[in-house]
């Protein structure tokens, strides 16, 4: 057990749900309510100044044993430049009410990471200043990185039909006196 985990346990006893070492990397499970305090503590006092990565994982249908068995997890990879140490925080998020407090006030970089996570997994980040979709169109339905989201959806994005309609409309327009033939999609 590394020094950091000891300090974390000492300071936030109940919030540290579990800890493990995976491939030589220290992992700590944190309760989501205590997350901002934990991250703030790590940032200010333990010198974890670099939030290397923030992402969500959907564990629906995951077979191997896990210390905490909620459907989602938000993973924070923190790196300390002074001690050259990587610490991974895993925050379990239940399926029914997927929210996590934001860490944007502490790490600016978390802003887009959280937006992306919200976009792709549907986890809300409470207190985030600008929680919009990032990679998907604004009117997209569903969250593609969820395990129950099909790789090839049955119905297509409604905006796509509109685009095709527009293309058809334009193809009927007379360009320079000549009628452009075709233009019907696939016709």
């Amino acid at each position: 057990m590394s020094e950091v985990v000891g300090k974390l346990k000492e300071r936030f006893g109940g919030a540290v749900l579990a800890e493990e070492v995976s491939c030589g990397q220290q992992v700590v499970f944190i309760a989501r309510e205590a997350l901002p305090e934990v991250v703030h503590f790590l940032h200010e006092e333990m010198d974890f100044k670099h939030l290397a990565d923030l992402c969500g994982v959907d564990y629906q249908g995951y077979k191997p044993k896990r210390p905490v068995s909620e459907r989602f997890e938000v993973v924070y990879n923190l790196y300390s430049l002074s001690r050259r140490e990587l610490l991974r925080l895993r925050v379990p998020v239940p399926e029914e009410d997927p929210w996590v407090p934001t860490v944007t006030p502490i790490f600016r970089v978390a802003n887009w990471f959280e937006r992306e996570c919200y976009d792709l997994l549907g986890i809300r980040f409470e207190g985030h200043p600008d929680l919009r979709r990032l990679l998907m169109p604004e009117d997209w339905k569903g969250h593609p990185l969820r395990k129950d989201y099909p790789l090839e959806p049955e119905e297509e994005w409604p905006g796509y039909e509109k685009l095709r309609e527009k293309a058809r409309e334009l193809s009927r327009f007379e360009w320079g006196g000549r009628r452009v033939r075709g233009g019907e999609h696939g016709a």
Partner: peptide
């Protein structure tokens, strides 16, 4: 089974892979 975060110094910056 397990998880790992590995990063390299790509030309653009730190390129990390987190694989579960």
């Amino acid at each position: 089974p397990g998880e790992v975060y590995v990063s390299i110094e790509a030309p653009k910056g730190e390129l990390g892979y987190y694989i579960v």
